[in-house]
Design a protein around this nucleic acid. Sequence first.
RNA 1: GGCGCCGUAGCCAAGUGGUAAGGCAGAGGUCUGCAAAACCUCCAUGCACCGGUUCGAAUCCGGUCGGCGCCUCCA
Length: 472
Amino acid sequence: MALTLYNSLTRRLEPFEPLVPGRVGIYVCGPTVYSEPHLGHARGPVVFDVLRRWLERQGFTVRYVSNITDVGHLTDDADDGEDKLAKRAKLERLEPMEVAEKYFWAYFDAMEQLGVRRPTIVPRATGHVTEQIALTEALLERGLAYESGGSVYFDVSAWDAYGELSGRDPSELVEGTRVEVRSDKRDPRDFALWKRADPEHIMRWPSPWGEGFPGWHVECSVMSTKYLGDEFDIHGGGIDLVFPHHECELAQARAAGKPFARYWLHWNMLTLGGEKMSKSKGHVVDLAPLFERIDPMVVRFHLLRSHYRSLSDFADEALQASAAGLRRLRGAYASWPSHAGAGSPSEAWSEARARFAAAMDADLNTPEAIAVLFDVARDANKARDAGELGCAAAARALFDELLGDVLGIEVAPATGDESELLEGVVGLLLEQREAARKRRDFAAADDLRERLSALGVSVEDTPDGPRWRRLD
RNA sequence: GGCGCCGUAGCCAAGUGGUAAGGCAGAGGUCUGCAAAACCUCCAUGCACCGGUUCGAAUCCGGUCGGCGCCUCCA
């Protein structure tokens, strides 16, 4: 049983073997922190959080590095357009670093609600300008970059492997590239390693080529190798970053003599009504307002109910279906005894455990893994009804492990924070209702149940007496 | 124009050669005072369409139609 991952670089499924036995280095491209975190930001972190948990469970020590881009790169192509951070700063009347800081925390707050564990290292681009300059110098020394008008560009024509990741033919890239209005580039395919700062540009650093700021792609080449080594295991990112971002990262790093990432993993986009969520189309769902009406754990669950390399649709109907499904899993879990009692057969769910593992090992097939959990829920409910409490208790432990620890879904929703007052009042009403039922005054009993329901409290009668919960 | 992906039940969504997972919704049933929950049964002779390869194809090949992505910032 071994983990197999789809490697974008080779376009094949490959058995995963870390460079150093027992250790795994992962680098994931994080967001540019210049605006509110949205749904699109959630998929990668959730998927990689699960990958990390799965690897750690196999006994690997994982160093998980995910950066934050806090240098504003250009809204347009490399030689024109505005700095996104600076633009936002102007709009909000803030220092660019205040903008970065504000959205940095907004992003991590949202990730925390999604149950995404903090990366082991969160490097920021602005903290690694020295290293970015060093890489640029190394490329100049090797003759694979050139200075022009205070900026430094990577010379794509000098690097034959360019295009290896995205499968593009460099010679055909020229035609597709837009005509540069005013550019210091020798070739439109070339990309900036260092940009000269115009006088009004706020974020700027001194360099051998004058004041400027680093190009977008350099930061990732530098920060990944700084913390994970010149060669490391896994590099992840959204599929929309394959070209040009990752292509350029790879070219730069290898051109500088670093073997770089061995496995490239790319998650697919999210859609809304079949269309990619896109900022430019005003077609995004911000996380903060979404979490007001949907449990973040439902969002996480829904994300994991589709394979990370497939498109995932977030139409409300689909999200509600996930909510109902998770409610069922949680309800089942809550109904199982937490103590084994008369010995719980530890091998009770060994087949389910094996199926779950096989699904996870198959390029992180979380939808299939979740399907196994639904099967377990049904079988364990049956065991519970048959009085096989040890078996049901074992299922509870299994859920703690697989749904909770591996998939990172809180199995028991936060119910412990009901106020004593609410507990007391509902309890009192239920006593009245029980009394009514005893004297067979069902009209009164039903009235109480209906009115509680209208207030958001559902009541269910069980052999052990009434059970209530808040409706969501 | 170049490169690439996708089209599986009302909806979401696995499955990449061996005879269609799972979830939601829906129908019937058991249980219940009635419900709810739970459980049982049913719900795609067919995986956009047309050809081909094969003993066998949702899965491979060719074509057609439809949707989408990247090639510019994007997760």
